[in-house]
Computed example of a mutant assay.
Amino acid sequence: MVRTVPPNEEARSVFERLGYAVSGDGPEFVAERKWRSVRVRTLCAEDAARPGALDAEYGLECLVTWTDCVDELDDHLSEQSPDGEWAIIGVDDEGEYEVHRAA
């Protein structure tokens, strides 16, 4: 199944359950806890194929995508080799998640 809508609400839920304060709306937000601030972006694998889509603007970046898109997203990340520290989290329809690539 091809997913064209990124997992926005699922991503927010993951970070809130981990104790982060979440600010911002839509497919991009900031999650903060203690001294750590992470820019979180939700996307589908085809979103990552766009030129410049993975440019880092923050010290810590986290991409959240559907579980079935993780491998393709990881391939795009490896090809583009953006600066910064990165993590990829895959989520499913029930909100369960798994970190697939850590910074």
Rank of each mutant, 00 (worst) to 15 (best):
D55M: 04
R33Y: 04
R101A: 12
G59T: 04
E57S: 09
E94V: 11
L43K: 02
V14R: 08
R101T: 09
E57F: 10
D68S: 11
P6W: 00
L73Y: 07
E32D: 07
D25R: 08
L63T: 07
F15P: 03
L60M: 07
V99C: 06
A103P: 15
G90Y: 00
G95H: 12
E57G: 15
V22N: 12
V38K: 00
V22C: 10
T65M: 03
E96V: 02
I89H: 06
H100Q: 00
V30G: 05
R3Y: 15
E98W: 01
G95Q: 09
E79S: 13
V70H: 11
G84F: 01
I88P: 04
V30S: 06
R17K: 14
V38E: 14
Q80N: 12
R39V: 04
E94W: 13
S23I: 04
G90C: 08
V99H: 01
S13A: 13
S81N: 14
V64N: 04
E85D: 14
V40D: 04
P51Y: 00
P6C: 02
E94L: 12
V38Y: 05
L63F: 10
R36M: 04
D55W: 03
E9H: 10
F15I: 00
D75V: 10
Y58K: 01
G52W: 02
E72L: 14
E72C: 07
A11N: 05
Y58F: 08
E10N: 13
V14W: 06
R36V: 08
A56V: 03
E98R: 06
T4V: 13
A21P: 00
Y97M: 00
V40N: 06
I89C: 09
C44S: 06
P27N: 08
G59D: 15
L18N: 11
E96N: 11
V99K: 01
A87G: 13
L18W: 15
F15C: 06
T4C: 04
L54K: 10
L73G: 06
W35P: 00
V64A: 05
L77T: 13
T65N: 03
V91M: 10
W35D: 06
G84N: 11
V2D: 11
T42L: 00
R39N: 09
E10V: 03
R41S: 12
E28H: 08
A56G: 14
A102T: 02
S78I: 13
R50M: 07
T4A: 09
F29G: 10
A48T: 12
A45M: 10
G24S: 02
A48S: 14
K34C: 00
E16R: 11
L77S: 14
S13P: 02
S37K: 13
S13F: 04
E16N: 03
D92Q: 13
R41P: 03
D71L: 14
E94P: 09
E96R: 09
